[in-house]
Structures are given as structure tokens and as C-alpha cells.
Design a protein around this nucleic acid. Structure first.
Length: 452
RNA sequence: GUGGGUAUGGCCUAGUUGGCUAAGGCGUCAGAUUGUGGCUCUGAAGAUCGUGGGUUCGAGUCCCAUUACCCACCCCA
């Protein structure tokens, strides 16, 4: 038989068990945090009718979506979680309670060229709050609190949630008579950190066709920096000229005003006028989150407020606010930079039971007793030399090996060996489970991510 | 979609101005006497040098094509 060379497609991430366990721990933190704010879990199909996913049509989505036919069906893989959410909400509109809060941590697919940290299949961890007709600004203020909790949950403290409001930007561009080109301008301004002010200005003037004066005004505007209070004060100077702008500023103030109450420290939050986000469906507050010590990673969490989630699927005005964490990329970059905590348990079991007798029954019973004691136990089933059993325990990375031979059985105990220290002692099954559980819990309390 | 780069055993690499059986490390597997792994030592398996064609007495080494991958841009998580 011919061997087919095994390979994994470019742009798809595949992890070894130790890394997968760490990845899953991050997912678990996300689930718990999202759930703790009253978000309901949601799972939607990976494959949907292409008509539905492409309702919006045009642009990048059309180019990047995986689309195929099966029989007469025109199908596609979801490329984000927002469009499926829109369909879901429209479909179940009459059965849902609004504001509807859902979280979804699932894979999405984009057929674009893969690069380092850019995947074709990746996890997004989304939360959205959907209102029926209206949605209070307070929801937008709560979002940074959730972002804060998530990243603290990962073990990080050196991160910054940056917030802006597109009404402010659109209002400002309207003042300059540039409302038609706001999309292009925002995308350019969004690159400020990356390419610098001079290049931004060059693009604004040469490619987008602004006058020097307009470009200077924009650069001056986005150069407004300082504490949240300082930036907000500077923005006051632009009020009274454009209604949209004034509205945006009022919203931004509302969002910042409640931060302390929501428990977000000032140091982890910044009003930043350069944040715009490429997605054109955001209409109000926009969020981006960066790791302060790793600016090169870029935004690890983005989102914002939109006014019309499901207009393609239902005749209802459904405003919402949501964020998305690109989990696969975040994990990939953290791993690459050695920021994943090596102390975090990365073994599929807490203990490996090694039967030393011909009759496996006592070991089987012991494994069950240990599991009843609340730990993850693997029974070693192979009849190999003792050395090889130990070598397997070592390779698996299990923190404890539990030996059961004639001596132990006679005493009603088992030998518990700490694989890291080498220490070994004879304990009753109940004592063994308790000791292992304690050690494992201590290890699990450490953060997923280490800050360097 | 646009531009640039790279392709040598599972992984990382060496391979000199083209010249005898393609070298090394990691990993894998087997040993180094009976219930103790991580270290060390010994040995073994494993490569038609991405694929196809060309130049040459002779090509991993040069040329062409092709495919895959990587990087940058676009866009984005």
C-alpha cells in the first residue's frame, strides 16, 4: 500500500496534547467569564447556505469565503460568528428575550493567504448583546469590564483596552466636508501606530485626495493624547458644530463614566482617537485591546457597537454591541513568545496507575477509587517492563505515578510517586487521592500566561 | 489578488569553484541482569536531496518549468 505523506494544510493550527490542554484552559476561562456576565452559550453550524452568509455581498468576504456545492446546494463555511448570529436572532426572534446576550467560541474559516499568526481556520471567542429596537449605552460601558476580566483571568495585567466612538470620527470628518470618504480615512488612520504620521498624511493626500489642510486637521485631531479626562476635555473644543459628533462625545463620556463602577482600572483603559476598526458596520463605540509589552501583536480583542445586526434577514431594527477575541492567533503568538506558563499542568491525567501484579483487578479498582477522589487517572494497560512503564509516565508528563504491587495490596495501600521530586510514599487510596488532588489544584491556580 | 524568498530522512541543519556508498544534531526504536523515569553509553531504523525536464562524462550543487511553503502588501482575529 502506498503511504500518503501526512501533512496539515497551511493556515490550520494543530497542537500536541500539552499545548492543547493550555489552549483549552484559555477557552475554559473565556466560557466562565462570559457566562458570569449572563451570556448564554450558542453553537451554530459551521456550514450554512451561501446565500445567507453572503447576504451582505461584495468585498473581502466574497473573496475569502470557502464556498462549494453539494448536489444542488450552494454552501459556504462561516467566516465569522456575527453573520450566523444575525441569522439566528432573526430566525428565533419571537422566542428570544431581549436584550439577548450570547457567547460563542467556535472556529471560523477564511480562504486568504496564510501567514505567521494568520490562519485560515481559527477560533473566535465572541460575545454580543442584541437589543430589540433600542439598546442602552450602559451595555457599551460594560463591555470593557468583561474584556478586563478575561485578560486578568489569563494572568495578564499589562494590557490596555482602547476605546473610541465612530460618531465622533464621522462627525469630525463631516465638519471637514469629508463624510463620503470616512471609511478610507479611518482605515488609513488606523495604521498610525504601524507606519507613522508622515506616511498616513501622504496616503491621505495622494491616495485619498484630501487637501493638505484637511490632512493636517485630521492628524492634529488624532494626535490628541493624554489621560481620559484630558482627551475628553480636548474634544469638548469641537462641540456645537456637528450633531453626530456631539452625540458621539456624549456616548464616549457615558462609557468612561461608569468604568470605575464596573471595576476597570484607569490604567487598563484609554480613550484613543486612532482606533477605528476596518469593519464598516460599527456605528458607535469601538474597542481594541493591546498587550502593552507586545505592541507588535496588534489588537487581541476587537469589537464595537452596530445599529442594525440582522437587517438582511428580518424587518426589525436590532442594535447590538459585541467583541471578538482571535483566540488562535492570540494563543499562537503567546506560545511563540514563550509567554505560556510552563508550570501549568500539561498532562492528560493527574496520575498514572501502574499495575505490578499479573491480575489487573486490584489496579482497576484502585484507579476507580482515585477517580472517585476527584482526580484524572489513567490505568496503564500494557504488559511491559517496569522501566518502560516509568518512561511512559515521564513522557506523558503526569505529575504522579501510582504503583500497586503485592506489597501494597497486602497493606491496603498504594505507592504514590511524585514524578518531579522523585519522592515516594505509601498511602491508602483515599489519602493518595487527597494528596494528588491538593497538589494538582495548587498547580492549576497559576495563570495561563506569564508576563515578562 | 500584488511583490519577494525558500525547498536535503519525523524536526533542525552541513554539503566547499558540479566529482567516489549525501554528513551531523534532535527525535524515534532496541539494549546497558530481577519493582522505578528524566542524565550517560552502545546499537538500529529512516532521504529516489519538493516534482518534471534540460546542460554535462558526471548535479543536492547550474538552467527552465511546475507545485508547495514562507515573508511583505491588501484585508483582518
Amino acid at each position: 500500500m502506498e503511504i500518503i505523506k501526512p501533512r496539515t494544510l497551511s493556515g490550520f493550527m494543530e497542537l500536541l496534547p500539552e499545548k492543547q490542554l493550555k489552549f483549552d484552559k484559555m477557552v475554559e476561562i473565556l466560557r466562565r467569564t462570559y457566562a458570569s456576565y449572563g451570556f448564554a452559550p450558542l453553537d451554530t453550524p459551521v456550514i450554512e447556505d451561501a446565500q445567507i452568509l453572503l447576504a451582505k455581498g461584495g468585498g473581502e468576504t466574497e473573496k475569502q469565503i470557502y464556498r462549494f456545492t453539494k448536489g444542488d446546494s450552494d454552501l459556504a463555511l462561516r467566516f465569522d460568528l456575527t453573520v450566523p448570529l444575525a441569522k439566528y436572532v432573526a430566525l428565533h426572534y419571537n422566542e428570544l428575550a431581549f436584550p439577548f446576550r450570547r457567547f460563542q467560541i467556535s472556529k471560523v474559516y477564511r480562504g486568504e493567504r496564510a501567514q505567521r499568526g494568520r490562519f485560515r481556520e481559527f477560533y473566535q471567542a465572541d460575545i454580543d448583546i442584541i437589543g430589540d429596537g433600542k439598546l442602552d449605552i450602559l451595555n457599551e460601558a460594560e463591555i470593557p469590564a468583561i474584556i478586563y476580566k478575561v485578560f486578568r483571568g489569563f494572568g495578564l495585567s499589562r494590557f490596555q483596552i482602547r476605546v473610541n466612538n465612530r460618531k465622533i470620527l464621522n462627525g469630525f470628518y463631516a465638519m471637514l466636508g469629508l463624510s463620503g470618504q470616512s471609511g478610507d480615512i479611518m482605515r488609513t488612520v488606523d495604521k498610525l501606530d504601524k507606519i507613522g504620521a508622515d506616511k498616513v498624511k501622504a496616503i491621505l493626500v495622494e491616495d485619498i485626495g484630501l487637501t493638505e489642510a484637511q490632512a493636517d486637521e485630521i492628524l492634529k485631531f488624532i494626535a490628541i493624547r493624554g489621560t481620559n479626562a484630558q482627551v475628553l476635555a480636548a474634544l469638548e473644543g469641537y462641540t456645537g458644530r456637528e450633531e453626530l459628533f456631539d452625540q458621539g462625545l456624549a456616548e464616549l463620556k457615558a462609557v468612561t463614566a461608569n468604568l470605575a463602577a464596573f471595576g476597570v482600572p484607569e490604567g487598563n483603559f484609554a480613550v484613543d482617537l486612532t482606533i477605528a476598526r476596518g469593519l464598516d458596520y460599527y456605528t458607535g463605540t469601538v474597542y481594541e485591546t493591546n498587550l502593552l509589552d507586545h505592541p507588535e501583536i496588534g489588537s487581541v480583542c476587537s469589537g464595537g457597537r452596530y445599529d442594525n445586526l440582522a437587517g438582511y434577514y428580518i424587518e426589525k431594527q436590532l442594535p447590538g454591541v459585541g467583541i471578538s477575541i482571535g483566540l488562535t492567533r492570540l494563543f499562537y503568538v503567546l506560545d511563540e513568545q514563550g509567554l505560556l506558563n510552563p508550570e501549568l499542568p500539561g498532562a492528560p491525567a493527574d496520575a498514572l496507575v501502574l499495575p505490578m501484579t499479573a491480575d489487573p483487578a486490584p489496579a482497576i479498582a484502585l484507579a476507580e477509587q482515585l477517580r472517585a477522589g476527584g482526580i484524572r487517572v489513567q490505568l496503564y494497560c500494557e504488559q511491559k517492563k517496569f522501566k518502560q512503564k516509568m518512561a511512559y509516565a515521564d513522557k506523558l508528563g503526569v505529575p504522579f505515578a501510582v504503583l500497586l504491587g503485592e506489597d501494597e495490596i497486602a497493606e491496603g495501600k498504594c505507592s504514590v510517586k511524585n514524578m518531579k521530586s522523585g519522592a515516594q510514599e505509601k498511602l491508602t487510596p483515599a489519602e493518595a487521592a487527597a494528596a494528588i488532588r491538593k497538589a494538582v489544584q495548587e498547580a492549576e491556580n497559576c495563570a495561563v500566561i506569564l508576563e515578562k
